[in-house]
């Protein structure tokens, strides 16, 4: 089996590793880089617990080879908070009780964050559609949708501020 030297950006930091061809991206993140916020649920591309943002788009890291991330930008849940400040989506899940056990939460957060970056003013239906590849087995989706709306509102307010200051 071939081994490959890869270089990627993980949460803004440059990382390098030698990986066997069959290593999955989720194992690279969890076991080589020790970031265990990315979960493994089904391991069969169904649940979205392993979601990471790969070059701007949320994908299931249990179904991507680590070597495919060579040259890519990867973001995990550990990269959401900045300078000790929770990302608005994290704050939303906290405020609206968007989680119980928390197993699906990193994936939900990343899918929602990527979605909100492109849809600042979503309807509830659009949110449900966007998170339809992420399964939650205990909270139910009502509060998750509320949490995403909370974040959307907060992000809209934040982006309106500089304009108002003009």
């Amino acid at each position: 089996m071939s081994t490959h030297h890869i270089k990627l950006t993980l949460n803004g930091e440059t990382k390098e590793a030698d990986v066997p061809a069959r290593l999955l991206l989720v194992h690279l993140i969890r076991e080589v880089f020790n970031l265990t916020g990315t979960h493994i649920g089904c391991d069969t591309t169904s649940c979205g617990a392993c979601t990471v943002i790969l070059n701007g788009r949320p994908v299931k890291a249990c179904t991507v080879l680590a070597v495919q991330a060579d040259g890519a930008a990867v973001q995990t849940v550990e990269g959401l908070a900045q300078g000790g400040q929770l990302h608005p989506i994290q704050e939303g899940f906290h405020q609206c009780h968007g989680l119980q056990c928390g197993f699906c939460t990193p994936g939900m957060l990343l899918t929602s964050a990527a979605f909100l970056a492109e849809h600042p003013n979503p309807s509830d239906d659009e949110i449900r559609w966007a998170i339809s590849g992420n399964l939650c087995r205990c909270t139910g989706y009502m509060n998750i949708v509320k949490a995403v709306q909370y974040a959307a509102e907060k992000m809209r307010a934040a982006s309106a501020q500089p304009a108002a200051a003009d």
Binding site: R57, V59, K60, T63, W129, A130, G133, N134
Partner: peptide, 9 residues
């Protein structure tokens, strides 16, 4: 086809 995450790849 599939779900939004799968459709990204």
């Amino acid at each position: 086809i599939a779900d939004p995450l799968v459709r990204n790849l």
